[in-house]
Design a binder for these strands. Structure first.
Length: 604
RNA sequence: GGUCCGGUAGCUCAGCUGGAUAGAGCAGCUGCCUUCUAAGCAGCAGGCCAUUGGUUCGAAUCCAAUCCGGAUCACCA
């Protein structure tokens, strides 16, 4: 009889047993492993897992009820975990023994590492957030930040050495725009003198720049100038360009102002990141790295991988790959976006000896990332093969895209505050504030509000674009973090009242003698599935799988809770069984949500 | 025009490495708090899975074509 391995997922074990059975029953036939499919049995049928028989029929030239019976009998007598079976059409529905589930539960309910993989020794970097320093974060950036943080957590749980990196885009014409406008219109205003958060203050002057610029263009056009020319000739734009040149030349006054204003932005970002519960292990600044790619490009030219045009600009030809020609270095020798990214990619690779380099970047840059990877490959850089673009869809308003230049953005800080206020309002309306201190309430509102926001942005497949309607705001019912938090708080409450420590309690003498009720078994079955889901989330860089799983876990717990009492369980054995179940449910919930940076309260 | 991504219930989304009668949440309608937290549970209603053709025991899922929506194809980052 096969030994039950609770370290191996049940689906894998069933597949292995089925393979063994087929080999024993039909030694002549060669059935590929891919022909064996195992699914969870649909609720309307009896059984836990289902083996699909159709693929075998042709290969073995038998009827489903014949092969089903043979397989079923074999599994019952040999597998050690199949109790009974039922054949419906071409489906073999298997019911596991309760002993299997009892062994699984008592082996795992107290395992703080359940769902995690052993260290793989792989170095993975996840680059995310990567803001511009000329404006505050908006709602769209939140998706990037949460995704990056969640995927980092998932990859870590999956056994990787993860470095969270943030590449700050701190140089370029955009920051000069804010600087020019500040010089002219701020009258020396600082975050300290105005009480405005640094990133917002700088962002205000970025908007101011664009207002003035638009006005100047309009004036030139009404004076009879061609619009395209006016856009180039507007004095304030010329001033910004002059400032960029001064910056690159190292002009002290310009660099000092740049440092000061960037400093304000970083202070502002720090507050926002902290509030979001997001952090980084490594900061990169484009002002430090923007020259690095140049060298590599020049080397590529020497090697003949790249080519030079008459004006002296350097290009790569990707026509063989079905793409275009792409500029890598301007005629005047200055670098472009791609040049910087080439340098940074190599730098990251060398700094951390990377096996995988994940870029969390919106899907509007799919082409750019494709080119980046191809160019690196052409240049013979090994980092090319480590790059994975985690491409996500943009968050749009019902009216279309958010544009900070036009002021049609939902500000991230405002959104956070709004979510927390909503959490407070709903808690108060529900009359659930008793027994908390003021500080505890404050923390609870943050846990609920931020949890809802994170979950809302993570629960959808990253590659799909989202439409967010601020007027409708975000619900705290249904498919939300709040729902999961509530289930968790209920479990904690039960355990508290039973005087059981939810972290350390054990039930050493437990021995299952009574049949598992459907709601009990359903929960254990779903818990058994957790490591598979975590693995899939990592393989696909997709936190939405974890969100969906955890939501269903909470749903099943709520149904269970409705039909079975813990405190008034029929007998001591049932009580212990259910306590183990709910301890494990709470543990898995905390593990899954914690991996994505969502906290679960003990009381709400 | 080329390339890539999407189109599933009134709305927001699962399901897509082919499997049984396509699932959740929201919104709508019924019930359920003297019982471990009703931010919950149970139920009703709501679908030519964009269209057409193909592949096969079987297609929302794979292939092809078409239609619709989006992104991108910058000496901006």
């Amino acid at each position: 009889m096969r030994q039950i391995k609770i370290s191996m997922s049940l689906v894998e074990q069933i597949k292995a047993s089925a393979k063994e059975a087929l080999k024993s029953l039909y030694p002549e036939a060669d059935i590929p492993a891919s022909a064996i499919t195992v699914n969870q049995t649909k609720p309307e049928f009896t059984g836990d897992y289902t083996l699909v028989l159709f693929p075998f029929l042709k290969l073995l030239k038998t009827k489903p009820d014949v092969i089903g019976k043979q397989l079923g009998d074999y599994l019952v007598s040999h597998s050690g975990f199949v109790a009974s079976y039922d054949i419906v059409a071409g489906f073999l529905n298997l019911t596991m023994t309760d002993a299997y589930w009892a062994t699984f539960l008592s082996g795992k309910y107290n395992d703080g590492k359940y769902g995690e993989q052993a260290a793989k020794g792989k170095n993975v970097m996840v680059e995310y957030s990567s803001p511009n320093t000329n404006k505050p974060l908006h709602f769209g950036h939140l998706r990037n930040n949460f995704l990056g943080y969640a995927v980092s957590g998932i990859l870590k749980v999956n056994g990787n050495n993860v470095t969270k990196a943030n590449l700050v885009n701190d140089r370029g014409i955009h920051i000069c725009k804010s600087m020019v406008a500040w010089k002219h219109y701020a009258d020396g205003a600082t975050p300290q003198s105005t009480g405005v958060k640094g990133d917002h203050l700088v962002g205000d002057y970025y908007v101011k720049f664009n207002d003035v610029y638009k006005q100047q263009v309009a004036e030139l056009v009404s004076g009879g100038m061609d619009e395209a020319l006016a856009e180039k000739k507007a004095p304030i734009m010329k001033e910004a360009q002059d400032m960029l040149r001064a910056w690159e030349a190292g002009d002290k006054e310009t660099v000092d102002l740049w440092k000061t204003m960037n400093g304000w932005v970083y202070e502002g970002f720090d507050v926002t990141y902290k509030r979001l519960g997001i952090d980084f292990d490594k900061m990169y600044y484009e002002s430090d790295t923007y020259l690095l790619g140049k060298e590599v490009v020049l080397k590529g030219l020497e090697k003949g991988v790249l080519f030079k045009k008459e004006d002296g600009s350097i290009w790569v030809n990707l026509e063989d790959e079905g793409l275009d020609q792409k500029l890598l270095l301007r005629a005047d020798g200055t670098s472009v976006y791609m040049t910087q990214d080439i340098g940074t990619a190599i730098l990251k690779y060398n700094d951390f000896n990377l096996d995988k380099s994940v870029y969390v970047i919106a899907d509007e840059q799919n082409y750019h990332m494709q080119v980046l990877q191809l160019v690196l490959k052409k240049l013979g850089e090994p980092c090319a093969d480590t790059i994975h673009h985690l491409s996500y869809g943009m968050v749009e308003l019902p009216t279309g895209r958010m544009k900070s230049r036009e002021g049609t953005v939902v500000d991230a800080d405002d959104m956070i505050a709004e979510m927390i206020a909503m959490a407070q309002q709903q808690t108060e309306e529900a009359g659930k504030t008793e027994g908390f201190t003021q500080d505890e309430l404050k923390e609870l509102y943050e846990t609920i509000g931020l949890g809802a926001l994170k979950f809302y942005l993570l629960r959808v497949d990253p590659k799909k674009k989202m439409i967010f309607d601020p007027k409708e705001s975000i619900d705290l019912h249904g498919f939300t973090a709040t729902f999961i938090q509530y289930a968790h708080a209920r479990i904690c409450s039960i355990l508290r009242k039973e005087g059981v420590d939810r972290h350390t309690a054990t039930f050493p003498g437990f021995n299952l003698t009574q049949e598992l009720a459907p709601a009990e078994k359903a929960l254990i079955l779903w818990l058994e599935h957790y490591p598979d889901v975590m693995q899939a989330s990592a393989d696909e860089y997709n936190p939405s799988l974890l969100c969906n799983y955890t939501f269903q876990l909470a749903q099943q717990f709520n149904s269970f809770y409705d039909v079975h009492s813990i405190s008034k369980a029929e007998n001591e054995e049932k009580k212990q069984l259910r306590m183990m179940i709910i301890m494990m449910v709470a543990r898995v919930m905390r593990h899954a949500m914690g991996t994505m940076g969502i906290r679960l309260p003990e009381k709400m």
